[in-house]
């Protein structure tokens, strides 16, 4: 150890200190960015929706509005659009009722283990389709195959019916299993899906529904 020209580059304390500083700096930066992001992804309020204030994650009452997915020239990718009002399961939902319905839906999405077949916002398993924009999927549009199959007149009723008896309406050899979803839970799940489709995902999935020539089917 009595070596003369001891370079700082081979000094253990130097690297220990550097590691601590770099780790500390990266962590602080992450925490700072986390605060900023949390502010931006906090759910909006019903008033935001009424006043046309755009939130990355809108309030639960977004289920009372038409939702589309359109190209924004300013941002260079598709963004969700919140249009005029439309009834959801035949009525307009108050802020409290909508929040309760979304709560039931999100809870059910976890307890029924959706994420271990489907992807939500692109995360999950890859056995079944991504659900990020499922609400505006052309398959469930007025002209899509699912409405006729379930014999329902609105999209929300068709999806709810499918969720309760998925293997009665097989679309492919790979089917969704019966998960014992009740009528109420199915309603909640549809609200959850509709809410998720209104989240601003920076253009993911890209070109959604391009093939059918319509990305804002309703």
């Amino acid at each position: 150890m009595a070596n003369k020209n001891l370079s700082v580059w081979t000094s253990i304390p130097f690297w220990r200190r550097s590691a601590a500083w770099v780790t500390g700096f990266a962590s602080i930066l992450l925490i700072w960015l986390t605060f900023d992001t949390l502010g931006q992804i906090t759910m909006g309020t019903d008033d935001d929706l009424k006043n046309g204030v755009t939130k990355r994650v809108p309030a639960a009452t977004v289920i009372n509005y038409k939702i589309g997915y359109e190209m924004s020239t300013k941002r260079g990718h598709e963004v969700p659009t919140i249009g005029e009002k439309e009834p959801f399961f035949g009525k307009e939902w108050s802020a409290d009722d909508a929040a309760d319905l979304l709560h039931l839906g999100k809870l059910t999405s976890q307890t029924k283990n959706c994420m271990n077949c489907h992807t939500l916002l692109g995360n999950g398993a890859y056995y079944a389709p991504d659900l990020t924009k499922a609400w505006i999927d052309p398959a469930w549009s007025k002209t899509g195959p699912m409405m006729a199959m379930t014999g329902k007149s609105t999209k929300e009723e068709a999806i709810a019916e499918f969720l309760q008896h998925p293997s009665t309406y097989p679309t492919h050899a790979r089917m969704m299993p019966e998960l014992g979803i009740t009528a109420d839970e199915a309603k909640g799940l549809v609200a959850f899906l509709k809410h998720m489709s209104s989240i601003d995902t920076n253009g993911f999935p890209r070109n959604f529904g391009k093939e059918e020539g319509s990305t804002n089917a309703h």
């Binding site: 150890m1 070596n3 001891l6 370079s7 580059w9 081979t10």
Partner: peptide, 14 residues
Amino acid sequence: FRLIEDSDRRYDSG
């Protein structure tokens, strides 16, 4: 490799 050589000289020569 400068680092490897230097550290060898410092810790592994004696």
